[in-house]
């Protein structure tokens, strides 16, 4: 029995569970609807998942940093990133660099405001970021001024959708991004500090960390990553058709983070799991779409699956131990 223990720990690892389910979905999907697990089909699903992957990275950092700390402005920030990028580049490749810089700076600054509201003023994260979302949405509207914004420039589309070895650029970007995130979480002081302050805020402060500053910066990063995802998303879509474009990413990023094994109590869970979580969610959605299940059934299965995953590894401590 004793030899089984390490194996069991491995099996109970959220990343392993999520990967297992994702693979299972591919197999069952292929079985029920041949072509589901075709290379090109998988690549398509990964492409769609990559944007959520980048948004969820920011959410991952924020959620790590403490109990109940969350960023619900990311969806609107995706929209802002896309619209602002499109408006500044104005369809010309020469403006892409400037557009990129502006998107990064603006979204980072708004995130900083989130962080200040949460830490210095003391507004609960949930409601602070939610209200900031309203402001951000109106910023998007302000940029468009009610008129259509020019779409992606050729180079933006090429970077995101252009294929090398039959794989679109965004997937390469995502892979590099994943490596960077894992490095950030495991091999930098900032990353380690996030885990530790998320686990015990006061102990982190007493270890000499500037917890306030760290949390503000983390909100900045989260917004910036959402803006980045929006910028890429524009390249993917080619044009922006509505202001609620990114809304779905808000809660999807939270779900992906949790499915990837990040604890909403803070201090636990890395990006590899989150990336797998994003892929799993996309596989699940595609799987349910190709099955001849009516829309309502898809929703119910989606919800139940989530609950099952949560029960598998996101349970809280008993009140009575």
């Amino acid at each position: 029995m004793k030899n089984l223990k390490p194996v069991l720990i491995y099996v109970k690892n959220p990343t392993v569970i999520a990967t297992g389910i994702a693979l299972l979905l591919l197999v069952v999907g292929e079985f029920r609807a041949p072509g589901f697990a075709k290379f090109s089909q998988i690549i398509n699903m990964l492409t769609v998942a990559s944007f959520l992957g980048i948004v969820a990275a920011g959410q991952n950092l924020v959620v790590l940093s403490g109990k109940g700390v969350i960023d619900l402005s990311v969806g609107k920030m995706v929209t802002l990133g896309a619209i602002l990028g499109g408006a500044i580049a104005n369809g010309m490749d020469s403006g892409v660099v400037l557009a990129f810089m502006v998107v990064m700076i603006v979204t980072f600054s708004v995130g900083i405001l989130n962080g200040i509201g949460v830490t210095l003023i003391g507004i609960p994260p949930l409601i602070m970021t939610l209200s900031m979302g309203i402001v951000v949405e109106s910023m998007s509207r302000f940029v468009t001024g009610g008129l259509a914004v020019k779409g992606a420039t050729p180079i933006m589309s090429t970077i995101v959708t252009g294929r090398f070895l039959d794989i679109p650029g965004i997937i390469y970007i995502w892979i590099v991004f994943t490596v960077l995130m894992i490095f950030f979480q495991n091999n930098t002081r900032f990353g380690m500090s996030l885990y530790n302050m998320g686990n015990n805020d006061e102990a982190a402060r007493l270890s000499g960390l500037n917890v306030t500053w760290l949390r503000i910066t983390t909100y900045g990063l989260s917004s910036m990553l959402a803006g980045l995802a929006g910028f890429f998303y524009l390249g993917y879509l080619g044009s922006i058709y509505n202001i609620s474009l990114g809304n779905k990413y808000t809660l999807a990023s939270v779900v992906a983070v949790v499915v990837g094994g990040v604890s909403l109590s803070g201090g636990k869970g890395g990006y590899l799991g989150v990336a797998v979580g994003c892929i799993l969610l996309q596989f699940l959605e595609s799987f349910l779409t190709v099955q001849s299940i009516p829309p309502w059934g898809r929703e119910v299965i989606m919800g139940v699956t989530l609950l099952v995953l949560l029960t598998a590894y996101a349970r809280e401590k008993k009140l009575r131990q």
């Binding site: 969350i70 949930l126 809660l251 939270v254 779900v255 949790v258 909403l264 109590s265 829309p295 309502w296 059934g297 898809r298 929703e299 119910v300 299965i301 989606m302 919800g303 139940v304 989530l306 609950l307 949560l310 029960t311 996101a314 349970r315 809280e316 401590k317 008993k318």
Partner: peptide, 17 residues
Amino acid sequence: RLQPLITTYATGIIWRG
């Protein structure tokens, strides 16, 4: 013993279904 935020989000999907 699940977190309210994510759980009610999940049940919300089910109710909508």
